[in-house]
Design a binder for these strands. Sequence first.
DNA 1: AACCCGGCCAACCGCCCCTTA
DNA 2: CTAAGGGGCGGTTGGCCGGGT
Length: 297
Amino acid sequence: MGRPPCCDKVGIKKGPWTPEEDIILVSYIQEHGPGNWRSVPTNTGLMRCSKSCRLRWTNYLRPGIKRGNFTPHEEGMIIHLQALLGNKWAAIASYLPQRTDNDIKNYWNTHLKKKLRKFQSAMEPPSMAGDEKSLDFAESETGAGSSNLKLNQTSSSYASSTENISRLLQGWMRSSPKINNNNNNSDSIGSCSAAANNDLISHGDDQLESILSFENMKDVALMEKSTSKATFQDSGEKIINPERKQKADNNNNNIDDNNNNNSNPPLSFLEKWLLDESSSAAQVEEIDQMMELPSIF
DNA sequence: AACCCGGCCAACCGCCCCTTA
DNA sequence: CTAAGGGGCGGTTGGCCGGGT
């Protein structure tokens, strides 16, 4: 039924990437641009499957990726979007261009889910504490007295220090105008929208409840999806709109309506809502404060 | 000091969708 | 129209690390 895994072949290397492999991959992409991943292993001599190469590039080597240290604003965006869209990490990532879906997914699973759960149990009367339906958490409670959140774990291993890989490799990339020729094209991340959002977000009602009850927005989201399907494209490679996908595949060239978007497309309802609400930084901080209360005593 | 346990996160797996021949 | 291939996405895993005992 299912297709055989692409990486079944013997001799395919798995596990953490080495700096040497990263350099090979980056220099290849520098020369040829991302895409046609199938040919990457053969052309580079990397003993990695094409998927692994793509993943490595999109999640770590791509220029402009920001890693670690999620800001309260980003947290708020993620919480909002997760409530609205569910576990559509790629879609969520498209609103946080500097973040990868994998990163967001990990952050959600390791930090935000717990945070929200704590928050929810803090908000609920004790008798209700066991009922977790409203947050739709799939997993069961583990470790009832779960420990404090550990943020910013540091690691000395290469793989874990990749937060700086893009920076380290910037020299390589810089010598290549090809890839990042366009402010906003599919490889230059971290540009506009996030920054714009950061700037735009200035207010919001502080009703914490609103963070947690977006059910009413889901219909809107569905409508949204059916009509305009995520009109935002992140400046990365996650392309939600198929039309854009095709264009992107054709590679480059400014596709992007969204670039040129000076002819800014009108904000969709969802986007407006996000911008209005994602003042959520304040809301998230409030959650933090709420959750710290018990520890004060 | 050694061991155990749990958290974190990079990477893999497998399914799905889209494109192309 | 259909089948095959490639890429994208979400879920899951496994290894590393730090904290606790």
